[in-house]
């Protein structure tokens, strides 16, 4: 009976939401017995429902996709690398005095070559006369016409 008194007291506290987890466990234990005090019978399904429900489990598996998200950190690293390389290779070379000298030498040499080349071309200009003569002999084609007619027959 002392136990029943205790349980009744706990139930009152329980309904006011004042019981601790340990006290609630006591109530659950009490109501999971075969026999309980008849006037408390209606609490039995309640606590048993809680106990039964606690055992329900999630049985489906979790479909986790392992596909890794693209990491943009590495993209920036790659971009920086490309930038550095391009800067390294495209570095403007400095023009030294020696370079200038070489350039002037080359220019002078090329000027010489072109001068001689021009002189040579002017010397071969008389070849124009041949072209003129060629056009003058064009009338020879006219001979072909009658000749063609003759050979056809």
């Amino acid at each position: 009976m002392a136990l029943n008194k205790n349980i009744e007291h706990l139930l009152e506290k329980y309904e006011n939401g004042e019981t601790s987890l340990i006290e609630e466990q006591q109530l659950k234990n009490y109501f999971s017995q075969e026999t309980v005090a008849p006037h408390l019978e209606m609490y039995k399904p309640m606590f048993q429902y809680f106990l039964v429900n606690h055992q329900e489990q999630f049985t489906k598996d979790i479909p986790l996709n392992t596909k890794r998200k693209f990491n943009f950190k590495w993209l920036s690293v790659a971009a920086v690398a490309v930038l550095m390389l391009s800067v390294y290779f495209n570095k403007a070379e400095e023009i030294t005095a020696k370079d200038k000298l070489d350039y002037n030498n080359a220019k002078a040499a090329l000027a010489l070559v072109s001068k001689h080349l021009n002189k040579a071309t002017s010397q071969v200009s008389y070849l124009d006369a041949i072209n003129k003569a060629g056009t003058q002999v064009d009338y020879l084609k006219e001979i072909n016409n009658p000749m063609g007619r003759i050979f056809k027959k």
């Binding site: 329980y14 309904e15 006011n16 939401g17 004042e18 019978e41 209606m42 609490y43 399904p45 309640m46």
Partner: peptide, 21 residues
């Protein structure tokens, strides 16, 4: 608020159960 809600829920369940019982 949690305690109040809990207390109300427990009382409702007990009342309904007493009725059906």
């Amino acid at each position: 608020a949690v305690r109040v809600a809990l207390s109300r829920a427990r009382k409702t369940i007990r009342e309904q159960l007493t009725k059906t019982h």
